[in-house]
Design a binder for these strands. Sequence first.
DNA 1: CTGAAAGCGCTTACAG
DNA 2: CTGAAAGCGCTTACAG
Lengths: 332, 332
Amino acid sequence: MVTIKDIAKIAGVNPSTVSRSLNDHPHISNKTKERIKKIAEELGFEFNEAARTLNKKKTNTIGVIIPQFFDDMRGEIFFANLLGKLIKEAQLKGYHVRIEYEIEKNQIKKLIQSRGVDGLLLLNPYIKKEDIEFIIEKEIPYLFLHYVAENFKEKNLNYVRTNQEKGGYIATKYLIEKGYKNILTLSGLSINSEFVERTKGYKKALEEFNIKNEYIIDTDVTFEAAKKVIKKEKNYLKNIDAIFAQTDLMALGVIEALNEMNFSVPKDIPVIGFDNIQLGTYFKPRLTTIEQPISKLSKIGVKKIIDLIDKKINIDQLEIIIDPKLIIRESA
Amino acid sequence: MVTIKDIAKIAGVNPSTVSRSLNDHPHISNKTKERIKKIAEELGFEFNEAARTLNKKKTNTIGVIIPQFFDDMRGEIFFANLLGKLIKEAQLKGYHVRIEYEIEKNQIKKLIQSRGVDGLLLLNPYIKKEDIEFIIEKEIPYLFLHYVAENFKEKNLNYVRTNQEKGGYIATKYLIEKGYKNILTLSGLSINSEFVERTKGYKKALEEFNIKNEYIIDTDVTFEAAKKVIKKEKNYLKNIDAIFAQTDLMALGVIEALNEMNFSVPKDIPVIGFDNIQLGTYFKPRLTTIEQPISKLSKIGVKKIIDLIDKKINIDQLEIIIDPKLIIRESA
DNA sequence: CTGAAAGCGCTTACAG
DNA sequence: CTGAAAGCGCTTACAG
């Protein structure tokens, strides 16, 4: 592999001159710069990353901690999308992304101590409290993305996330304004706060329109669970005239159940989802839903973590909340 | 950050002794080893990765090159699954994974020249010929995973892939043995050879059973395209008594189209898919399909690339072909 | 069993 | 504008 020394020898200069030339140091004459760059190019020279990292204490790597439930169907689509966009965004800015599951106990600490990353993008809401404290103590640039830690509410943390409450509010309000008053929301049986937030938004909308009847069912965040629950709660359904399912997959399960029970969607019962997965556009009726702003999330996430790494922004606190968007199609 | 020197000072020994102790070098007394390990533990020491990499010329990183079409719906589910499993597998073996899109021209060359990875897992079939030649010339351990390069048929390349032809064969044979003789296959309009292979398998099965009637339609690999084509080819359908759609998403589109045209699946026309995406289990009728062996693919892929890196196996040629599996459910 | 020294491939403060 | 030297944090061949 060709090194700076090789180039120095060929050019008859000191390695430091090669380094400076290739790094466009201002105090080097254009003549030598160009001469050296040409040689470097011809030899196919690239800086040895490890050597640079060791010297500059800069890895150009963003650590991304993903949750174990990445394997879930729902997580999969959403996270795959998010990760794909994160990788691309980072790459465009000269960083790369190191994705890790939290498998071992001290994974995050090790990652930091071994100087493997410049900063951390945390996509896992279940980061341990001590890890968060460690990150903060060591002043490692970090950003919660999409989720905010569940285990550490005391301190103001850095995050970029979707306004889930607003999403729930928008969905519910849309149904109310269409004239529905008995709205069931299917929420997630999950410790992730997104569902709590969406239900909050649901309640807020009801309240705003002075509607007293709340119908809330918590269930697993899957197609099957949603389908099953709807079929089981036949009697319950008699009071209901619209449904807000808090994920698209659940909404599809609900529609499937309703179809099998000979309800027509949206005529008999409109259904609105959440996420805007592509799947929702495939089947009839095409899903009306709330869009998670994945593109914005990844663009802003990458930009901000790099700003934090470059100390372009204060590490004090960074709170960015992105509003989701109503997508009107056929199901409601 | 704590270094080997710090520990040496505290322990009153030479840094080399610390290094050897922490690396479990055989010639160090257990006493000092344990003493030093304890100090290291107390200080929260971890090896500086860059320093180690620089010295040992080993990054413990597997480069993963993904195709631009990772963003596609189909690619997304399949690749997300595969990537998630790759990351986990690699991590369990002490490696991490560096995922890159091929954005710049010389991305792969740079990755190699800058010594960023120990080996390459190529998930992109459209690697340029010169890149492949470069990889081979530099003797970088590499493995095509899932796809095999389209641009470089001359040389025997290393790969781990699914036997797509066999998949097409199994699917078609299954339909034939159920008594169907006029089988349409919906193949992919795509330069990826997987569809060519699956169609080959389809033909092979027909031939084996002496069936002369071939029905092949090539179309975009999407739900919508499949649906549209089926609705358009109404007349064509009259001759058909079973359909083999070469992706699950296409199969779902086909079923949706058939339903809208008042055909019952599988009673009137059975439909078999390919991929075994989870989605296929959600809707009625649940999809009969061919399973892509994603778990095996990722496990073997990671294991073999590490073997190549460790020179445990010959770099001469590695060809592993994994058979897909028939999953019988309701649609056929 | 342990130490002293050189080296991995860069960068940069110090000189001139 | 350029060079010589020290250093980033490890490892390991050479000695003893």
